[in-house]
């Protein structure tokens, strides 16, 4: 039954795409939950994570990657990009957002937009590095091929029309434990408790002896690190990176966060899976050129009937 195969294929593709979006979306939703900032720079931070990963690969040498050495390289990249993006996000908060804690929400937003522009420009410069992986730096702005470390073999057998590859496995193997770990941090640790308290009422949290600046810093660090993990998974799954990839990735993730109910982590994951699936189904059964319209159309419809998103709680707006 060919149409069944086709449908199953779309499910696999949609869910894998959705899980990658989810990792980025959590970064948005965490920061939003704690300081009510739509962190425009988050998508571009994610982009820089991918550039770091590709640079590392270039430094490790681009030989024949297979078996254990390939998986070792994946682990090194994951750790390095997560550390890098976490630290960078923390630094951006220090320099660009922290001085504006008492200013209006929208000044903060403009600062984030400024940070986003700077990160995009750094990505352009980075793409011009004189390394083989960047084509020697001649075409700084061009999209870069990300080597296929993870094989594209079909785990269901080469005859099967449906493709399920180690790439799809990788996406789930990395994202699911990360999400479980994160949920544990937020619900079970002291830091998590402090984060929730700060999100609910920063003044009261400070009165209770919580160092809210440290808590906010930690939130940026964790959110950034998730962006870093996502950047490596994205790169290994799609095999192309470019200095402009943060825009769409950021927009999808932000939409997912809002769709699920901004501030809610399970919501962000649910929203991301919905977006991944809708994109796949629309590409496959309708026309690609209408996919964006359908995604945002569904978003508007859902919000009209559920104004706080899929899993968001009905909280009075803080203005």
């Amino acid at each position: 039954m060919e149409w069944v195969d086709f449908f199953l294929q779309q499910l696999i593709t949609g869910l894998s795409n959705g899980m990658i979006i989810a990792l980025i979306a959590i970064g948005y939703t965490m920061v939003y939950g704690i300081i009510e900032l739509i962190n425009f720079a988050h998508g571009d931070l994610f982009m820089l994570g991918a550039f770091l990963a590709l640079t590392l690969l270039g430094m490790l040498g681009l030989g024949d990657w297979s078996g254990a050495s390939a998986w070792a390289a994946v682990v090194i990249m994951l750790i390095a990009s997560a550390g890098f993006c976490g630290a960078l996000n923390w630094g951006i908060d220090r320099l660009a957002y922290k001085p504006l804690r008492s200013a209006s929400k929208l000044s903060l937003l403009v600062s984030a937009i400024g940070a986003s522009f700077i990160l995009v420009n750094l990505g352009l410069f980075w793409g011009g590095l004189p390394m083989d992986v960047f084509a020697g730096g001649v075409a700084a702005a061009a999209p870069k091929d990300f080597p296929a470390l993870v094989p594209n073999t079909n785990l269901l057998g080469e005859e099967s029309l449906v493709q399920f590859t180690p790439k799809d496995v990788l996406v789930w193997v990395v994202t699911v434990p990360l999400m479980i770990g994160l949920t544990w941090i937020v619900t079970r640790t002291r830091l998590g408790k402090a984060m929730r308290a700060t999100a609910q009422n920063p003044v009261a949290a400070r009165l209770m002896g919580i160092d809210t600046d440290r808590v906010i810093g930690a939130t940026f660090l964790i959110g950034g690190a998730l962006g870093g993990f996502a950047s490596v998974i994205y790169s290994l799954y799609n095999n192309t990176i470019s200095f402009q990839m943060g825009y769409r990735a950021g927009m999808d993730a932000f939409t997912a966060a809002v769709l699920g109910g901004i501030g809610s982590m399970p919501g962000a994951v649910a929203g991301a899976l919905v977006i991944g699936l809708v994109r796949s189904m629309s590409d496959a059964y309708l026309e690609t050129r209408w996919t964006n319209t359908i995604v945002f159309g569904i978003l508007v419809l859902i919000l009209i009937f559920r104004p706080s998103g899929l899993l968001g709680s009905r909280v009075k707006e803080k203005v």
């Binding site: 504006l100 937009i113 400024g114 001649v138 700084a140």
Partner: peptide, 28 residues
Amino acid sequence: SNVLASPNNWKYLIFGLALILVVRLKPD
């Protein structure tokens, strides 16, 4: 051919820095 040498390639950076500085110095 160096990407840093072309002034056009610095535009995003300057624009972004200016935004951050303006809201930093004049938050309202």
